[in-house]
Design a binder for these strands. Structure first.
Lengths: 207, 207, 207, 207
DNA sequence: TGGTAATCGAGACGGTACGTCCCGTCTTAAG
DNA sequence: CTTAAGACGGGACGTACCGTCTCGATTACCA
C-alpha cells in the first residue's frame, strides 16, 4: 500500500516529516482551491517539499487524495450499539455529517469520483477505500439487529449501504451541506422499512 | 439562457453550424479524455472552430457541459402511466440506465458535481438542470399514484426523488455501470415501501 | 531564417515587442549568469514573456543565442581601406576587440561552440553565422591588397581568416580578455608574412 | 592536486577502483551526450558508484573533466627531434590530430572553455592544464631550433604556441574535424615564417 | 583482535529548470 | 459584428539533475 514505510534496502528511508507535511498541505490546499484546482505544485510549496518527493510516493493526485480521504474518514469507525437498528444508523449518519461538514472530505470524494470515471485504477482504489468499509459497517449493524431478532436476517445490507451512501452524497454534494434531523429520520426509515423490512419505523428514538 | 439563438444587432448572428459542431465535439472529447482532461482547445479544434467562439457563448467549461448534459438527459422526459407506481418508477430507471450506459452522461455529471463543489454558480445551475426536473418527474408519478389511491398523498416525493437519484449515481459512478433488474426491483421497493408507505411491494409487475 | 517576420495566414502576427524584449533579456541574462546557466525561464521572466513565446520562435537555447550573437557581431561589417593590408587587418582586430571587451559576445560564442560539438545542426548554423562572413571580410581585404600589388594574389585568405580567428579566440577565451597593441602587431605580422608572403612587416603603420 | 591519492586518517583510503571507474564512465558519458548533457548522475550510475563518491573527490563537473582531459592529452608529451623546426611542429600537429580525432578531447575542451568564461577558478585550472604545458613544448622546440641556428633566438615562442593552438581549435571545433596534410603544412609555414622569422619554408620535408 | 573512523553503494531530500499543455484574452483579416 | 486562426502572458504539468543528506555495510588502521 502506498503511504506505508518501506523496510528494505540500504539507502535512506522515507521521511516521516515530509510525509505528514504533504498530507497536511494537501488538505489545506484542497480546502482553499477545490479538488480540480489543487495543484501538486502548490501542495509541495505549502509542505516545504520538492515536487519529486510527492511523485516519488504517489503516482498521481488521485492516489494522494485517496490517502488524505482515508485519514479524514477512517474506514474502521465502529458504531456503538444503541440497541435498535434505527439508532445505530442514525448514529452513523450523525458521525458522517460531522466529518463532511467540518472537513473537505466531500470535496475530495467528489473529485475522486469524477477522476475515477476515466482512470480505471483510481476507481478500483476508491471502491476499496470507500465502498467496502462502508458496507462492512452497515453489515455489522444489520447483523446485530438480526441477532436481536429485530430484522430479517436475509435483508441485503450491501444494498442498504449503497442506498444510504447515495442519499448522503446527493444531499451533501448537490443540496444543503447538512444532514439535518428530518433528513436523517427519513433516510433511516426508508432503509429500515424499505430494505430491512421492518414495519414500525422506530424513528421516535432517533436524534 | 445560454445556447439559445440570439436575434438582435447588426453583422452576422450566431452560427448555428458552429453551435452544433461545438456540442458534438464536446461530447466526443469528454468521451475520449474524461471530464477533467477535456480541454476547450481540443474541443475547438475538433469542432473546426476558433476558441473565442466557445468563450463567446459559454463563460466556462462547466456551462458548456451543462448544456451538453441537458441534451443527453432531457429534463422533460414524460414517463408513461403503467397504472402502478412501481411500474412507473421502474420505467424511469430503465430509461436512465439506457442514457447512462450509452453516453458519457455519467462522466459529465460527476465532473460537473466535482467542479460545483468549489464553483458556487455552477452548483446552482446544476441543481436547476438536474435536481429540479428529476423531482418534478417523481412528483408527477407520486401524484398519479395518490389520485389512484395507491399511496399516501402526503408522501415526500422530493425525498423519494433524491433517494432514487443518489442510489442510481452510486451504482453508476462507483460500481457496475449497469442498473440491472435486481437492482431496479430493490430500489423501487425501497422507495415504495420506505417512502411511499406501501406495504405490498408490487415488484411482481416489474421488468 | 529564424527571427524574421512571417507573412502568411490570417491570424495574429509575431509580436515585435516580445521579439525585441527576448533578445535584450537574453543578453542581460547571459551576461549575468554565463551561457550554461542562462535559463530560458529567467530570460522569459526578464522579458516579461511566456516561455512558450520563446519556444515558439526558437527551437532551443542555441538558436536563440545564434541570433543574439548575430546582433552583437554583425556579419556585414565593412573595414575601411587604409591602403595597407596590415592597416586593414589591424582595424579589423581593433573592432573585434571592442565588441568582445564590451559585450558578452565571447561568452556566447564559446557556449555555442561547446554546444555545437554535440548538436550538429547548431554547428552548421554557427559556421554560417561566424566563419563564412569572417572569411568574406578577410577575402575582400586580401583582394584589395592583391589589386594594389601588395601581396601574392594566390595567397589563401580563408586560411588567413581561420588563423586570425583562432588566435583571437584563444586570447579572449583563455587568456587576458584584451587584444592589446603588441598582440595585434604580432598577429598581423604572422598573417602578412606567414600567409600573404610579404617580407617587410609593415607594422610600423599600425596602432 | 585533486585526483591524487590521499595519505592520512584511520579508515579506508580512496578506492582506486572507483576512481578509475569514474574517469572511464565520464569519458563514455561525455562521448555519448556531449559536455553540457553529461550529468554526474549518469556518470555515477555508469561507474557503479554513489554520487557522493564523485562529489567527495571533485568539487564540480569541471574539475572532474579537467582530470579526464589531462589523461587524454597528457601535458608532458615529448616531441622527438626531427632536426628541423618544421618537422618538429608537424610531428606535434600529427599527434594532436590523433588525439582529437579519436577521443572526445575536443568536446571536453570546448565545454571546459565555455564553462570557464563564467567560473573564474576553472579558467585558471584550465590555463594551467592546457596553455602552460603546450607553451612549454613549443618553447623547447624553438630552443632546439635556436641552438641549431635555424631561427632567431628571440622569437616569441609563447605567441607561436597560442597561434598554433588557436588555429587547431578553430579547425577542430568549427570546421572539419581533421588536421589534414595541407592544413598542417600551411600552419607550420605560418608559424615558421610569421613568428620564427625563417624565410624558406622547409615544408618540403614535412608529412 | 577488536574498536573506530572514514569510505563505499544507494538513494531520499529541497530545489531549479526543463519543454509541453492549456488557460482565457487579444489581434488580425475575411465574410 | 462574427468567424477561424492563432499569438500572447501565465500557471501547472511530470521529469531530469543538482548538490546535500542519511543509511547500513565494508574496510583498514591503531590500540
Amino acid at each position: 500500500m502506498l503511504g506505508t514505510a518501506d523496510t528494505l534496502g540500504s539507502g535512506p528511508r522515507r521521511s516521516a516529516r515530509s510525509h505528514a507535511a504533504i498530507l497536511k498541505a494537501a488538505l489545506q490546499v484542497v480546502d482553499r482551491r477545490g479538488y480540480a484546482n489543487a495543484s501538486i505544485e502548490e501542495i509541495a510549496a505549502e509542505a516545504g517539499v520538492g515536487k519529486q518527493t510527492i511523485y516519488r510516493w504517489w503516482p498521481n493526485k488521485g492516489a494522494l487524495f485517496i490517502e488524505v480521504y482515508g485519514r479524514l474518514v477512517p474506514p474502521d469507525i465502529v458504531i456503538r450499539d444503541t440497541g435498535r437498528i434505527a439508532g445505530d444508523l442514525d448514529a452513523l449518519l450523525t458521525q458522517l455529517s460531522r466529518v463532511y461538514s467540518n472537513t473537505p472530505a466531500g470535496v475530495i470524494l467528489s473529485g475522486l469520483i469524477a477522476e475515477g470515471q476515466t482512470a480505471g485504477a483510481l476507481a478500483d482504489q476508491l471502491r476499496e477505500a470507500y465502498v467496502v468499509p462502508r458496507r462492512a459497517i452497515i453489515r455489522s449493524i444489520f447483523e446485530r439487529a438480526a441477532v436481536r431478532g429485530e430484522i430479517d436476517p436475509l435483508a441485503d445490507s450491501d444494498f442498504a449501504s449503497d442506498l444510504l451512501s447515495g442519499a448522503v452524497w446527493f444531499r451533501l454534494l448537490l443540496g444543503t451541506h447538512r444532514l439535518d434531523r428530518k433528513f436523517r429520520r427519513q433516510l433511516v426509515e426508508a432503509v429500515v422499512r424499505g430494505v430491512a423490512g421492518l414495519e414500525g419505523s422506530g424513528s421516535e428514538n432517533t436524534g
